[in-house]
Design a protein around this nucleic acid. Structure first.
Lengths: 115, 115
DNA sequence: TTGATATCTGAGCAAGTATGCATATGTCAA
DNA sequence: TTGACATATGCATACTTGCTCAGATATCAA
């Protein structure tokens, strides 16, 4: 497999907004705190305080992170009185998370004479 | 779905090395340049110079990025004379990339009375 | 050896990011 | 209204990150 010229190949690569969007999604998953938040939400909706307690970060930090996830439409809010309940709004993300988790938990796929 | 107590839930969350590994993988996919590199390599192996030309970054920057990907075992090197040919060494990653790409290319999954 | 080519690497900088602190907003009970 | 509670937000700060630049290493040809 290598009949592509450099120009052919360049033309096939992801660019522009689509490229940015892909990198952005991964960027949101690239932080341990946010992974834990999304992991927690995959078990059902939770209010901010509980999320902060479960994930073990300050409520302020939680609120900041939730804003990022909300802006990116990965989670959605439902307000009830003085509480705000967050839930997943994008189940693709859970798939990505699950796949990465499986991958990460593999002992070591293959490790021959590499290096 | 909400029979989990906070403690139950806390116990279910990803932690420690597995959490770090997941976030690290996503971190590597969180940069447009690296997405393009991996995208290019999904079409077959390439030497550093060609990769730099295709992805349109300096050869130095390419070398730095390839080191990251190599360290994380996402790509592997094959040396031939004065050239170094890089290839994907982890096809899970291509799956993640493909899924995120599909996701990103969706017009807008659902946008109801949110907000 | 000398020079050209291909890749790698360390230092430093500019831009981005996660968090804490202080404070603002909004809701409820008394 | 007053005070307590739940969440949100602006700013400052410490940390991380991708790049360039300069120079190192390695291979090949003459």
């Amino acid at each position: 497999m290598q009949p592509d010229t450099l120009n052919d190949l360049r033309g096939k690569l992801l660019t522009g907004p689509a490229l940015g969007a892909v990198a952005e999604i991964f960027g949101l998953l690239a932080d341990p705190t946010r992974v834990r938040i999304l992991d927690a939400l995959s078990h059902g909706e939770r209010c901010v305080g509980d999320l902060a307690a479960v994930v073990v970060i300050s409520e302020s930090a939680m609120s900041h992170q939730l804003r990022l996830l909300r802006t990116a439409r990965l989670v959605r809010v439902r307000r009830d009185g003085r509480q705000a309940f967050y839930a997943l709004d994008d189940h693709h993300v859970i798939g990505l998370l699950r796949d990465a988790r499986k991958h990460a938990e593999e002992p070591t796929p293959k490790r021959q004479g590499t290096r």
